[in-house]
């Protein structure tokens, strides 16, 4: 029996880029490619089970993970560069992540929504306590605490829109882009917590110890974004 090849071990010189699965990836890849980083063919093969991909640069690897995990990989230095939304950055508030460049992709907003009939007679000034279903408990708690309201958060990982109709929580905090999902579930967007776009993020220690290289990539992405905006 042939022995399995040992996994590539990250050396001092490997540069790992963490990209988020799903919606943002489609918008991010043109920028990554324009910056001259081309992943191996398996990256675009939906049947591939690989999680880590080689690129045209021998020392650069791409990993594809959930957007919340992009932040965690970069915060702990397991990945050096990454792309993720400022919704995720706000939620974790990792001190080890720098977000030097707004890529202007993945535009949406982080909003509070509630059932339409409730929105009509609700007076937010009288709240002392709210119960909210969200993927963003930290951002939600902070946001409401700043107005003197205690937010009790029910953490969900998806399908937040179901929570009000099934009595799990009367309100939700979630990403809204067009608002059609909200309308389809009888919900109304009542307040915007933050405008969201995706950022190029850099691990703090990598920026300090591989300064030349990291600032070089940030500049490259900046040039790509400027060229796109000019077009």
């Amino acid at each position: 029996m042939p022995t399995p090849a040992s996994p590539p071990s990250p050396t001092d010189e490997t540069l790992v880029i963490a990209l988020p699965k799903g919606r943002i990836l489609d918008e991010a890849m043109p920028l990554v490619r324009a910056a001259g980083i081309l992943p191996e063919p398996a990256f675009d093969d939906p049947k591939s089970r690989l999680l880590r991909f080689a690129t045209n640069h021998p020392h650069i690897d791409i990993i594809r993970v959930r957007s919340f995990d992009v932040a965690t990989f970069v915060a702990f230095g397991a990945a050096h560069l990454g792309i993720c939304g400022n919704d995720v950055l706000m939620e974790f508030d990792y001190p080890e992540i720098y977000a030097p460049l707004d890529l202007g992709i993945g535009r949406c907003r982080l909003s509070v929504a509630e059932p339409e009939n409730m929105a009509q007679e609700d007076d937010p000034r009288r709240w002392s306590h709210v119960r909210i279903a969200t993927k963003y408990p930290e951002v939600t708690r902070k946001h409401f605490a700043a107005r003197g309201v205690q937010a009790e958060c029910v953490k969900l990982n998806g399908a937040m829109e179901l929570a009000p109709s099934l009595g799990l929580a009367s309100r939700i905090v979630d990403l809204v882009s067009t608002g059609t999902t909200l309308v389809a579930n009888g919900l109304k967007e009542v307040e915007i917590l933050a405008e969201v776009t995706s950022r190029l993020i850099v691990n703090r220690a990598a920026l300090k110890t591989r300064s030349q290289e990291m600032t070089g990539w940030v500049e490259r992405f900046r040039t790509v974004c400027e060229a796109r905006d000019a077009a």
Partner: peptide, 11 residues
């Protein structure tokens, strides 16, 4: 502003 600077959030 301090917080944005801490995160090097240029935007």
């Amino acid at each position: 502003l301090r917080e944005a600077l801490d995160h090097k959030d240029a935007a």
